[in-house]
Design a protein around this nucleic acid. Sequence first.
DNA 1: GGCCAGGTTCGCT
DNA 2: AGCGAACATGGC
Length: 314
Amino acid sequence: MDILPGQGLTLKPRPPFSLELTAGYHTYFRGDYGADTFSDGTYRRLWHREGKPLLATVASSGTTDAPELRVEVRGSQINEDDGRFAVERLAWVLATDADLSGFYSLAQGDPLLAMATQKLRGLHPPHTPTVFESLALAIAGQQVSSVVARIIRTLLIQSFGASHFDGRTYYDFPSPEALAEADMAGLRQAKLSARKAEYIQGIARMVASGSLNLEALRGLSQGEVVERLTHIRGVGRWTADWVMIRALGHPDAFPSGDLALRRTLSLLCLGGRPLTPKEAEDFSGRWSPYRSLATVYLFAASRLGLLPELAQVR
DNA sequence: GGCCAGGTTCGCT
DNA sequence: AGCGAACATGGC
């Protein structure tokens, strides 16, 4: 077990940045969720590089306006390249380079967002390490309630993403290879429906075999991403929207089919009157070209129980 | 026990 | 194009 490097790495996010909010979001502000852990001010996440497990821990050593993160990387026989890899991953996962200024300017002219950005100042849009991870997570969570989604996702990660070192068990998101080789019974034990198991395994097999390169979606326009993703069996518009927000870091995606998002919109903006996906889409136009951040802030507010306060704004 | 949840596909009109 | 059913499962 090595710790890298002795003197400690630092990461300087673009201010304002709140580790509490950004890392917290990964766990739905509950301490842990799947492979992500955030407790006692420390964010932990494991992933693999060239088959080697790397455990990164991050704690804040600055403030929201002068942010600085202390990073530690652990693993066996790790080298400086592993360290660089880990820091790069962290920068992406915590979106440390994200520029919030345009969104915050827009928010000044929108009472609801003004309140949300004030409450959630420094929240950067959290990203999944890989496109595959967000895609599989999204499919696992299709249609079911967030409570059920959490159960299914956690089981999936615990069943296929375990990694052992230093006498402990840690979890990474399962590799495409692991899910490609999984037997149907195992996937069903993770409470996936036969259909979802089939979707996820199908994608895992294509990625593992090299016939589908999800990482190549980076750099394509939103329209192209939607086009390509929705051609994959099991992936509809909702799933593509979430992948663009969570994995690709697109600025202006909006999952207008999302029931939770529509309910939030209904409560905060329409006094409880239900709205259709089309209406939600039209409504979201006012937040363009920052609709991804608007979505992230609304979900963060919801998970932190801030919706009642925000509902007062209008 | 029935119905609804952070959808998607498939088979009908 | 648009509509309904099926799909698993937890919670109210």
